[in-house]
Simulated assay, not measured.
Amino acid sequence: MTTRWLSPEEQRAWRAYIAASALLEDTLDRRLQQEAGLPHLYYSVLAMLSEAPDRRLRMTDLAEVLKITRSRLTYAVARLEKDGAVRREDCEWDKRGSVAVLTDEGMALLERTAPGHVETVRRAVFDHLDPGQVEQLERICTGITKALQGDGTETVTPDDLPWRRRSCPSS
């Protein structure tokens, strides 16, 4: 099989993406740590739960929404649970599963933290894009996500998707 090397244009785009995504994640993490002592992932857990019906989601569904492994989510939820922001309950319809529930304390934390987070996202990303570029960014990211999740052109196995993996790969 012949390697399909990146063209110079693709290489520049790839490196720009890597730089932007690393710096954006660092910026979001630093701001949230300073404001609320939360890493970006923990904030995302709170935000997703706040948008769910009754502020609750099955852990597996929450992992899928966040695009992370179940073990990583379990660790994050355990920390948020310890801080009183989230609680876990047994899943009524699946005895093997559990449900993450956003507490009133977690909602208050999210409401205090959200304005600063949104301002950081706006300054870091959207203030630099015109409406057409925002639309392009959405289409590009949606296309990449669909391809990685299996858009019908490739077979995606459960181990290809983080939230379906049985365990983390060993290093």
Rank of each mutant, 00 (worst) to 15 (best):
E105K: 06
R30F: 03
D26F: 12
R122P: 06
E138W: 12
T153P: 06
P8K: 02
E89M: 04
G37Y: 02
P169A: 10
P53H: 07
A13L: 06
K95V: 11
L129A: 04
R79G: 05
S7D: 02
L23G: 12
Y17A: 13
A147T: 09
L109D: 00
Y75W: 11
P8G: 06
C168P: 14
E154Q: 15
L32G: 05
A13K: 04
V99N: 03
S170G: 10
A63R: 01
V45F: 03
A36E: 08
Q33C: 05
Q149K: 07
L32Y: 04
R12H: 08
K146T: 15
V45K: 04
P131H: 03
V77H: 05
L41Y: 07
L137E: 07
T103D: 02
R12A: 12
I144S: 07
D159I: 08
T27Q: 09
E35T: 15
L38F: 00
A147Q: 11
L24K: 11
D104Y: 10
C141H: 13
V125P: 01
Y75F: 09
R56T: 08
D151R: 11
T157V: 13
Q11F: 05
L73Q: 00
V125D: 01
T74Q: 11
S21I: 10
L73R: 00
R164K: 12
E64K: 14
A19M: 14
D26M: 12
D54A: 11
G150N: 05
A19R: 14
D160S: 06
Y42T: 14
D104S: 14
Y43E: 00
K67C: 12
Y42H: 14
A13W: 03
E138V: 15
L6C: 00
H117W: 01
G106Q: 02
Q136N: 14
D61G: 12
P115T: 00
Q11Y: 04
K146Q: 15
G106E: 05
R58V: 12
S170A: 11
R112K: 12
Q136D: 15
L49A: 05
V156L: 08
R15F: 08
T74H: 13
A36W: 05
V101A: 00
E111A: 09
W14Q: 04
P115E: 00
A147F: 13
G150Y: 04
R122M: 06
H40W: 08
D83I: 01
C168W: 15
P158D: 01
Q11S: 06
L28Y: 02
A147V: 09
L66C: 06
Q136R: 11
V86Q: 03
R123A: 10
L137T: 04
Q149M: 05
A100V: 03
E35N: 11
R122V: 02
R56K: 10
L66V: 05
E35L: 11
G37S: 03
V121H: 01
Y42K: 14
T2A: 15
D61N: 13
M59R: 13
